[in-house]
Design a protein around this nucleic acid. Sequence first.
DNA 1: CTGTTAGCGCTTTCAG
DNA 2: CTGAAAGCGCTAACAG
Lengths: 329, 329
Amino acid sequence: MEAKRPTLEDVGRAAGVSRATASRVITGAHRVSEPTRNRVWRAVEQLGYHPDLAARALARGRNDVIDLIIIDEDAGQVGSNPYYSRVVSGILSALAGTETQMRTHVIDEPEAPTRLDDVARIVEVGALLINVPPELAARFSARCDRVVSLGLSAPHVPSIEAENAAGARAAVEHLYRTGRRKVVAVHGKPNNSCATGRRSGFASASIDAGHEPIGAEGGFCLEAGVTGTQQLLADHPDLDGIFAACDLTAMGVLRALNESGRRVPDDVALVGFDDSFLASVATPAMTSVRQPVEHMAAMATRALLADETGPSWHRVEPAPLQIRRSSAA
Amino acid sequence: MEAKRPTLEDVGRAAGVSRATASRVITGAHRVSEPTRNRVWRAVEQLGYHPDLAARALARGRNDVIDLIIIDEDAGQVGSNPYYSRVVSGILSALAGTETQMRTHVIDEPEAPTRLDDVARIVEVGALLINVPPELAARFSARCDRVVSLGLSAPHVPSIEAENAAGARAAVEHLYRTGRRKVVAVHGKPNNSCATGRRSGFASASIDAGHEPIGAEGGFCLEAGVTGTQQLLADHPDLDGIFAACDLTAMGVLRALNESGRRVPDDVALVGFDDSFLASVATPAMTSVRQPVEHMAAMATRALLADETGPSWHRVEPAPLQIRRSSAA
DNA sequence: CTGTTAGCGCTTTCAG
DNA sequence: CTGAAAGCGCTAACAG
C-alpha cells in the first residue's frame, strides 16, 4: 500500500539523466537542453513526483516558510477575532502557486518576549507581525530583518498599514455631509497605532466641520463600544452620529443605542472601521471604513518572498468608505 | 551578526560527548546516564540550541506537521467565516508545547479533487478535514489514513462532531418551555451532515411538543436567514420562535425580523447554533447551541498526534445551550 | 549542457 | 551506556 514516494533519483533514472540534472530542471535552472527538460518533466508526471520539502530545506539551508506571528492577550480568544482570519486568507492567497508554506504562531501576551526571541531565531523567508507592540517588534526586528508589521510599529520596523486617519476623516465628512449635526466617537486604546491614527483623523475632520471633537475612550472590543456609547449618550443626549474605532466596537455601539431606544440610522447614524464581515452581518448593515486586510497581508507576504523589505519599507494603503444602511440619511 | 545556529555537534563538543549521545538525550531516549544527560542539557541552554526541524524531518523520514485542509467555494472568503479561526485556535492549542507545526491549505471548490490528492500524498502526522464533502473525504482517506473530518463524513472516515440533533432538540424544547407557541426553523443545506442532524433534532422535538415541524430551506449564510425568514413570516405570520441552523443564518433571521417590524425577543424568540462570537455580538445577544469547535479541533489534533485514529474513530461532543437575551421569556 | 561529489543537521543501527 | 558511521532526499559547486 504505502508505496514509497519517488525520489529525484527515480525521476532521473526514468528520464535517463542524473539526479543533478533532474534537480536542475525542477528548480528551474535554465542550464538544461530543451529535450532533456521535457523528458524530465514527463518522468515527473508519470511518477507523480513531488519534492521532499524537508530535504530541500536542509540542502538549501533555508526552508520555504513564512511565519505568521500573533500576540493575543488570551491565545484561546484568537478564534473570535475576524481580523486574524482575514490575515491568514491574505497570506495564503499570496502563497498560492508557490512552494512556500505558512507557519502560525499564536503567542500569549505574558510569554511574548521569550517566545518572540525563539521564533526570531527560526524565521526563514520572513515573518509577519500581528498585534506585536512596537518595543517587542523593534526587538524582534533587531534579531531578524525579513519582517513586516501589520500596522505601524517602531520607526525602523518595516510595516504596512491602512490610511487610518484619512479613513476616519472620510467617515466623519460623510456623516456631516449627509445631514448629521453632532458626530462623536468611541476610540480605541491610546497605545494602538491604528487607533491613534483614526482618532486624529476624527479630530481634524470634526474641527474642519466646525465642531469640537467629542469622543470616549474605548478599545477594539464590544464592551468598549457599549460603555463608551452609554457615557456619550449621558453627556451628549443630542448626538446624532457615531464613529467607532472598529467594527467590533461599533457592534457595541449598536447594542447600546438599541438599549437606549434610539434607532439606527433614523435617530443616530453609525460608521465603523474595518469593513469586516461583521459590518455586513449587522442589523442594519453597517457603513464602515474598509481596511483592506487581506490585500495588506498579501502585499507584505509578497514583499517578504521577494526579499525587498528593509528598515525603510513602509506602505500605506487606501481605506475607502463602504456606505450601508447604518448611515442612511 | 548573523551567527550560525549551533548544531548538535556543537552541543556534543560543549558537553564532551558525541553528537549521537547529544541527540539521544534531546530526543528523550533514556539509554543515557544521569550525569551525561545533565551536561548535555546544560550545553543546550548555554548555546541556545534548537534542533533544525528540516534536518530532523529528513532523518526521521517524517515531518512533525499537522495539515489543516479547508475547502471553500471561494478561497478569498475564508476570512469571513468565524468557524475557521476557531478551528485554527483549537489545533494550535493542542500543538502548544509540541515541536509539531500546523500547515494550512485552503482549497478552491473546483480544484478540490486534484489538490486533495496532492495534499494526501504529503501528509505527515495527520490531516484535519474541514468542509470536505463525504465523497472527497472518502477518497482522501483511501489515500491517507491519519485523517479526521470535523463533522460527520463518509462511514469509514474518522470524524468528530457535535451533538447536532440533541443540541437542536434542546433549543426547541427551551423555546416551548419558556412559553412560545409556534417555533419554526431556517435549515441548512440538505447535503451538509451537521445541518441534517440539526434538522432532525428540530423535527423530532417539534413533534414531541405536539407540533408539526415547519421549516424553510436555507444554508449557513446570512442571505439564507433573511429569505428563509421572509418566507416563513409570509406563510406563518403567527410564528413566535425561530431556530436557525447556525449563527450566521441567525443573523439573517434577525435582520429579516427587524425589517418586518417584529422585536426580538418580545415578539419572536431566536436561537442560533454554534455559539460563535457572533452570538454574543448580536443585538440582542443571541441564545445559541454551543458547538465546541476549538475543543473538537484540539481533540482531533491530539488523536492524530497519538496516532490513535482509524476507520472506526468517531467522537460526538455535547452541544449545550447558551441562553441569552434573544430568547428571554 | 550534464555527471560527479560533497555535504545540509539529525537520527539510528551497529559495535564496543 | 556511548561512539562511529551510514544515510534521509536534495542542492550546489566543480569538473568535464
